[in-house]
Computed example of a mutant assay.
Amino acid sequence: MDMLEQYLPFFTKLTPQQQAVLSQNTTRHTAKKGEIVHNGSLDCIGILILVRGQFRVFTLSEEGREITLYRLWERDICLLSASCMLNSIQFDVSVEAKKETEYWKIPASVYRKVMQQAAPMANYTGELLAARFSDVMWLMDQILYKRMDSRLAAFLLEESQLEGGRELKMTHEAIARHLGSAREVVTRMLKYFQSEGLVALSRGSVTISDETGLRKLAEESLR
């Protein structure tokens, strides 16, 4: 399967037998927008490799609020959907398709078996896992120590860049789920932004009016 060589940096360093095991057990899937493709630690479906689309990896706070940990795009690899293969790591996350998404899936048992035999694969997996946890720690720092107005401004700017336009087709509830906040808090903050001329609000959407002003407000929360 030629695609694995393109998506997995360590693939060419595996033996022909190891390459064959991965290739023969990799399957292609399509997820609809809004579909949950992995639901918590009990749902250990395997390694997901994005071909096109976008995944949102999120968890639930103790209050039951969703918090987006990070997002994945084309050529990204989702490891935490196979947390059962990672010793001593129990990270209860869910994965949602943010738009129609095509992806490849390698069963956790297959990936683990080959990884135990191949040092380059094990090293890459460790590096990728460390990078994901770095993303999570950055998010925790944002939640614990940064102001909500800064986080919200940074989120709007990031979404605008991703969607390629100033109008964001998102409800206040959806924004709150990304930020791990309450809808009422997000609504109050957006109304304040509107009063300051930073955004314009309409049903189901937020339009950025003053990108420079938002960027100044978001300085401490921009990567």
Rank of each mutant, 00 (worst) to 15 (best):
L217Q: 10
I67K: 12
A31W: 07
L190A: 13
T15W: 10
Q18T: 00
Q194G: 03
G164N: 05
V95W: 02
A31N: 09
L139T: 03
S205T: 04
S221K: 02
S41N: 06
A97L: 03
E35R: 02
T26W: 13
M148V: 12
R188S: 14
S181R: 13
S81L: 13
A174F: 05
E102S: 14
L129Q: 04
R112L: 09
E96A: 00
I45E: 11
Q142N: 07
S181F: 06
L152Q: 03
E173Y: 12
C84Q: 08
Q142S: 07
K169S: 14
K13N: 12
R215G: 02
R147W: 02
A200W: 06
L22N: 05
S209M: 15
A154D: 10
T68E: 09
F10I: 05
R65D: 12
I49M: 10
A122P: 05
V57H: 08
M85S: 10
N123T: 11
T59I: 03
L152K: 05
D43A: 06
E163F: 15
G180V: 04
G213I: 01
E173H: 15
Q117P: 03
S83A: 14
W73E: 02
V199G: 06
N25Y: 05
S61Q: 13
E167F: 09
R56W: 05
S195R: 13
G64T: 12
D76N: 08
T15Y: 14
V114I: 10
G165F: 02
L80N: 08
E74S: 13
H178K: 08
E219K: 15
L72V: 01
Q116K: 11
R151D: 05
S209Q: 13
F11G: 02
F11L: 06
A154W: 05
H38M: 09
Y103A: 07
M121Y: 08
R147H: 06
G213E: 07
K191W: 01
E219H: 14
E211F: 13
T12N: 15
K32D: 03
R177A: 14
Q18Y: 02
M140T: 07
D149Q: 09
G204W: 08
A97Y: 07
L157F: 12
L79Q: 11
F155G: 00
G34C: 07
E219M: 11
T68R: 10
R132T: 03
L201A: 03
A174W: 04
A122Q: 11
E159Y: 06
V206E: 04
